[in-house]
Design a protein around this nucleic acid. Structure first.
Length: 330
DNA sequence: GCGACAG
DNA sequence: ATCTTGTCGC
């Protein structure tokens, strides 16, 4: 299921809500198969091309507040439309919310299937070190515009630590961002990028968590298992888990524990609140080794190859938008 | 009520 | 990550 399919499925579900009733963003997300998609549902309401036949005015907050509405008079207009349908609204809230709330939304819950797919990868995940010594690494990052996703990879020699070239690629209509489902957004672009390389790297570095994920199968793990390549996840913020003791000085690291086990480490790159990254195994590395390798790539206050990939992805996106030719793009 | 929510 | 119709847990 791609972004377009998810959007159409959301509207199909919403058509089930009759006059005189309302539903919530979260209930629609639940019917898509993941409560995490509630914000995405809000976004789909904002770009609803079928209004008012697809009744996005009947979608409200889970506590009965009206929520937003794209119209010159916004929520005021939403209230009018609902009242015209017999739904009472007082001070921006649905009256008798429990009675008016419609929950019988029927569909095949595509996001639940994606969650099951993630879980099906768990038996293939290997968190022990292997396949060393590594001689080359590729760090990848993806930038997004209205024209699609732009993935970039930065090559790095691991023997002499020499930065290599970058390459980038464009993928139209990427899957949307949904918390805990990041892999489905990023991985197609990354696969296309790796396919464009002459040779596969020994190690992949990605911008997101690996085992530091509520189901233990974050984007870095999913990428590693699907591509069968040793992978390390480096995230700028924590998705789940607890840091044992905040790393005090630059270079310090501290274990991150999820479900009572050490699944990764917080590594301090610089002073200040945003100066920490969270390193976890994606595939075929241990938490400790992932930390060591990442520590060896630190340049200034960043992880060098990831910064280069980030800049290259942004550059590819900006160049494409402005119509300038992009190295590595057709 | 406030802040967290990989990107 | 962009662009801005949420939810949950503390």
């Amino acid at each position: 299921m791609d972004d377009r399919g998810l959007q159409e499925e959301t509207y199909r579900l919403l058509r089930q809500v009759p006059r005189g009733r309302v539903t919530s963003y979260g209930a629609l997300a639940e019917a898509l198969g993941a409560i995490e998609a509630s914000r995405l549902v809000g976004h789909y309401m904002a770009i609803n091309p079928y209004a008012p036949e697809v009744p996005c005015h009947r979608v409200v907050h889970s506590d009965g507040r009206l929520g937003r509405f794209s119209s010159p008079r916004g929520p005021e207009r939403k209230a009018e439309m609902l009242q015209e349908e017999g739904v009472r609204v007082e001070r921006g809230r649905i009256v008798d919310f429990d009675k008016v709330m419609f929950r019988d939304l029927w569909g095949d819950r595509p996001l639940a299937r994606l969650r099951e797919y993630q879980l099906s990868l768990l038996p293939r995940l290997r968190l022990a070190d292997g396949r060393e010594p590594y001689s080359s690494l590729v760090a990848v990052d993806v930038a997004y515009t209205d024209l699609g996703a732009f993935a970039a990879g930065a090559l790095q020699g691991l023997k002499e630590g020499r930065p290599g070239p970058t390459a980038s690629i464009h993928v139209a209509a990427p899957f949307p961002y949904i918390p805990t489902f990041l892999g489905f957004r990023e991985i197609p672009a990354i696969k296309a990028l790796l396919d464009s390389l002459v040779r596969r790297p020994d190690l992949l570095l990605v911008d997101g968590n690996g085992t530091l994920h509520p189901r233990g199968i974050g984007y870095a793990c999913q990428a590693g298992v699907e591509l069968d390549i040793p992978t390390i996840g480096v995230a700028k913020s924590l998705l789940c888990g607890e840091v044992e003791r905040p790393p005090a000085g630059v270079g310090d690291a501290s274990p991150v524990v999820v479900d009572g086990e050490v699944r990764g480490h917080a590594l301090r790159l610089s002073n200040g609140k945003r100066g920490v990254v969270y390193v976890s195994p994606g595939h075929l590395v241990s938490p400790r080794r992932a930390l060591e390798i990442t520590g060896g790539l630190v340049a200034g206050r960043t992880v060098g190859p990831l910064l280069r990939a980030h800049l290259a992805a942004r550059e590819a996106a900006a160049s494409f938008k402005s119509g300038r030719p992009v190295a590595g793009l057709p």
